[in-house]
Design a protein around this nucleic acid. Sequence first.
DNA 1: CCCATGTTGATAACGATTCTCAATATCACG
DNA 2: CGTGATATTGAGAATCGTTATCAACATGGG
Lengths: 172, 172
Amino acid sequence: MGRSRRTGPAEGGQADRREESKLALARLGAWLEERGLKHSRQRDVIVETFFAMGGHVPVDGLVARVRTLDARVSVATVYRTLKLLSECGIAVPRRFEDGQTRYEPATDRSHHDHLICTGCGRIVEFENERIEELQQRVARSHGFEVDSHKLELYGRCDRCRRAEAGTKDARS
Amino acid sequence: MGRSRRTGPAEGGQADRREESKLALARLGAWLEERGLKHSRQRDVIVETFFAMGGHVPVDGLVARVRTLDARVSVATVYRTLKLLSECGIAVPRRFEDGQTRYEPATDRSHHDHLICTGCGRIVEFENERIEELQQRVARSHGFEVDSHKLELYGRCDRCRRAEAGTKDARS
DNA sequence: CCCATGTTGATAACGATTCTCAATATCACG
DNA sequence: CGTGATATTGAGAATCGTTATCAACATGGG
Ligand SMILES: [Mn+2]
Ligand SMILES: [Mn+2]
Ligand SMILES: [Zn+2]
Ligand SMILES: [Zn+2]
């Protein structure tokens, strides 16, 4: 049925994330030097905060959090840094239905799709090899060569469904 | 493997579309009267043009086309009319990766997903029952009850691939 | 034909993101 | 350490697609 993975700030140890953060900073540093770029205080803060938050972080959320550490970082810098992270393969941008871009740490187990709760916003990740195969097959049957795809399932999570049922019972 | 369907202005006879258009206008008329709304010259033009274009029409494209018939129709009216169409089930809004909303005529065989060529923009529709089932299953295995989903496959269509291969050969 | 009410067009406002540009930080070099 | 070339920053303007505002204008039942 496909394995699921860490999905947000609630899962994945803080220690793990600090570790990820360190690795990411090192990798970013190397990447920057390779092309004669400089590193900066704000980039460090942004990267650390990004990993500290974990999950699928919306840009404005990251800005807010970063500003609790350094009140004068601009949104522009956050956007710029996030773009850098995605260019050097440390973060991946995601655009769900709400129209704002979120970034998530890029893991080695790169590809996965998302289940999104329309009630509480919870995001669960999943991989399903069988679905991917079928996608390839459908595409090929139409003469297409797929090189990326987007699969998002929207619905209510168990928690939200229980909550709803509760209020419905109470009302009747 | 799933059946594919009409996908754009290139397919589906003009006659069919004019027919669709008539039906849609009638349906819209009824829908409007039911709730004490009025009908207007511009709504008619917009609906007719929408069906004449067929496929997945971007709002600005529709605006442009409508204006060749009546130069003073405002974008606001086009947006408003499209929203009406989707409210009364005549059209369906779609948001692909390029960030602009497109509308497509709602057919009886309502649900389908999309294959999108990143080369020429061609959009092919498909339905795959097996994929839908697997989606349900994955969702349920995570405690979710899905009520909508988005599946988009991005790649190159046969035409575009051939074109590419051609230029590559020519170069070498 | 009239008038209450729905519709329109122009344009301002919007939210997310990117751009501009002058001020500032970084770093390789002496 | 300076110094200077160059990358980075912050603030705000600009952009893009879309929605909101509101006065002028149609529509259609009476
Ligand atoms: Mn994810
Ligand atoms: Mn379609
Ligand atoms: Zn939920
Ligand atoms: Zn193509």
